[in-house]
Write a protein that binds this DNA or RNA. Structure first.
Length: 578
RNA sequence: GUCCCCAUCGUCCAGAGGCCUAGGAUCUAGCCCUUUCAAGGCUAAGACACGGGUUCGAAUCCCGUUGGGGACGCCA
């Protein structure tokens, strides 16, 4: 028996589908995507409350060792949809190719999810009623499915060699038609199989795709979609050695895990007919499908690929993002050449000190929006407001400056104590703070973080202010600034006179220091610029920084005097030599 | 090559035939403030890909063109 031609969608899916089809028939002149969307999302909502059918979504990473930024966006939408409907979010590991170090390849992915706060109801480590959650542990289930497909006439054993298939494929190319297998080496009876085997051939199992009709289904993002069955290939679902291929495993496992909504990237859209064919052949109820647009490369339209890091580094915005991170890593003595130090991978943002909620918020808006102005979403708000109907159809390119803008906003709304706490680990890794910082150390961090204000965009930016955590005689000078501000004629003498003033300032706080400075320039009859920069370079070694008087106050009188002395001594040594 | 999809400022989004002189964010530029700065404030510039329809009226609906992208594995 051959598979039924499926004109007019899968009859066994949700009521939503049937209802939508009715509406379509009644409105065949105005079947707008919007109408569909409203209806489908309404029905979806209804499913969860009415029938008590729990929404179950899944994200199925293969254990590669990295959590890709585009993958996280897909995972986020799955997670939000499940949470929005009070359902479950499942993590399934697609490791059909046996991994050598599964543990090693999986842990960074789970860490990434945990860091972002995307919790899973079933999956690795938390387990659940449908365990195991590793595809490689489900071979028996997959093989049994193949047997049923074979028995039902939805698949056949094929004895063609790779070379023979290749020849047919090339012939199709020449004729400029889509490759469709001739089924010349198809064996549907034991006798045929025996004949081929007598020739020494071995068999794979192929899907016996319909050769007429269309596969129609309603995508929750894209609306009604149709594919001609005749253009689908007889895909291989099982190799000669008995191992099963991805699409078979995926359809079978989605059913096994009771997935109700398959939400994944568009590149799977054209794979959907074969999965529907498998699912129907096995008598499954079909899940609803939602195909998300992919995340495109910075400044481009192509799909973001983590292998193209070098190309993206040519893009100025992306390079800035990378360099910013690299400075922070280097200040911690960490290598920047490693594969995970890559802005296409979630671990990068954690390592540099981004807020996970900022990344999430940015990713949320990459392909989805609530309206024309709401941009900031707490996790609770995302869950409350997220709908698939408002997901965009077109690809969105990854824009580093905008991500940073969100990061800044999130950092700024954090209370001072939280920002300081986030900065501490960076200082510790740099060695600027001991393993167990004293209360005084922590006060100092808090003061610097407060003074730095909006200059502290990511937690790792604290490493721009290391001079506040170094001994008075052990921070470097910006040579250019030193020359301009201290080696300049008369600068050292003025600095010396200001030093004398500092000896008696009381109290030694920013406001008083500011007054003292004003009186000093009045007495000297100079513009403030003639002295303030010299003080900044002497005390911090740098030409730029946050408010100077706050800086002086944080350092305290003794440190300021010692630092000015050190700068003057340095200059003195130079002139003696000359 | 075949099939499918997409199309509003540089980028991310809003837009459901009249609320559009197209809105917000980001980026960019200018000005202001300031001791510096990747700080802050204010202002500005910047888009409906093109061509046909339908309609009293189109960014919005239809067709075509162009452009971009994806899928075409015994990968996942």
């Amino acid at each position: 028996m051959t598979a039924p031609s499926m004109r007019g969608a899968a009859p066994d899916c949700a009521a939503a589908r049937a209802a939508a089809a009715t509406v379509n028939a009644a409105n065949n002149d105005t079947r707008t995507g919007a109408l569909w969307h409203r209806l489908l999302s309404f029905m979806t909502r209804d499913d969860t409350t009415g029938a008590g059918v729990s929404v179950r979504t899944r994200f199925a990473p293969s254990p590669t060792g990295y959590l890709h930024i585009g993958g996280v966006r897909t995972a986020l939408f799955n997670w939000l949809f499940a949470r929005r409907h009070g359902g479950q979010f499942i993590l399934r590991i697609d490791d059909t190719d046996r991994q050598r170090n599964l543990e090693e390849a999986l842990q960074p992915i789970l860490d990434g999810f945990r860091w972002l706060g995307l919790d899973w109801d079933e999956g690795p480590e938390v387990e659940g009623p449908h365990a195991p959650y590793f595809q490689s542990a489900c071979h028996a289930r997959h093989r049994e499915a193949v047997e049923r497909l074979l028995a039902g006439g939805h698949a056949y054993r094929d004895y063609a060699t790779a070379g023979e298939i290749q020849a047919e494929r090339e012939a199709s190319q020449r004729d400029k038609v889509r490759f469709i297998y001739s089924r010349r080496w198809m064996a549907e009876t034991p006798a045929q199989a025996a004949a081929f085997e007598a020739e020494g051939r071995t068999a794979v199992v192929r899907l016996k795709m319909p050769r007429d009709g269309v596969c129609a289904f309603d995508d929750l993002v894209r609306g009604p979609v149709e594919f001609e069955w005749a253009l689908e290939q007889d895909h291989v679902v099982q190799r000669a050695d008995g191992t099963c291929l991805y699409h078979l495993a995926s359809a079978v496992d989605d059913h096994h895990f009771r997935i109700t909504h398959v939400i994944r990237a568009v590149e799977h859209l054209s794979n959907t007919p074969r999965q529907i064919f498998i699912a129907r052949g096995l008598g499954y109820e079909l899940p609803a499908y939602a195909h998300l647009p992919y995340v495109a490369e910075p400044g481009g339209a192509e799909k973001l690929s983590k292998r193209k890091l070098d190309t993206y580094l040519q893009h100025p915005d992306f390079r800035k993002l990378h360099e910013h991170g690299a400075r922070i890593m280097e200040a911690q003595g960490k290598p920047v050449g490693s594969a995970s130090f890559n802005p296409l991978v979630v671990a990068f943002y954690r390592a540099v000190g981004y807020r996970p909620e900022a990344l999430l918020n940015y990713l949320l808006l990459l392909g989805w929006s609530l309206d024309d102005r709401t941009e900031m979403f707490t996790t609770a708000e995302m869950i409350e407001r997220f709908t698939l109907e408002r997901v965009n159809k077109s690809a969105a390119s990854f824009d580093p400056p905008k991500l940073l803008a969100f990061e800044e906003r999130y950092m700024q709304r954090l209370p001072l104590a939280a920002r300081a706490a986030a900065a501490v680990p960076f200082l510790r890794r740099n060695g600027a703070l001991p393993e167990s910082p004293s209360p005084a150390d922590l006060d100092r961090v808090s003061l610097v973080v407060g003074a730095a204000g909006e200059r502290l965009k990511v937690a790792g930016d604290i490493l721009n202010y290391l001079e506040f955590f170094r001994p008075d005689d052990a921070f470097p000078y910006d040579e250019k600034a030193f020359t301009k501000r201290i080696r300049a004629a008369g600068a050292a003498d003025r600095l010396g006179r200001f030093r004398t003033v500092l000896e008696t300032v009381d109290p030694f706080d920013a406001a008083t220091l500011h007054d003292v400075m004003q009186r000093f320039i009045a007495a000297e009859e100079i513009a403030i610029g003639r002295i303030i920069h010299a003080v900044r370079v002497a005390v911090t070694g740098k030409a730029v920084g946050f408010g100077l008087f706050e800086g002086l106050e944080i350092l305290g009188r003794e440190a300021c005097l010692a630092r000015i002395d050190r700068a003057l001594a340095r200059l003195g040594a130079e002139t003696e030599c000359a």
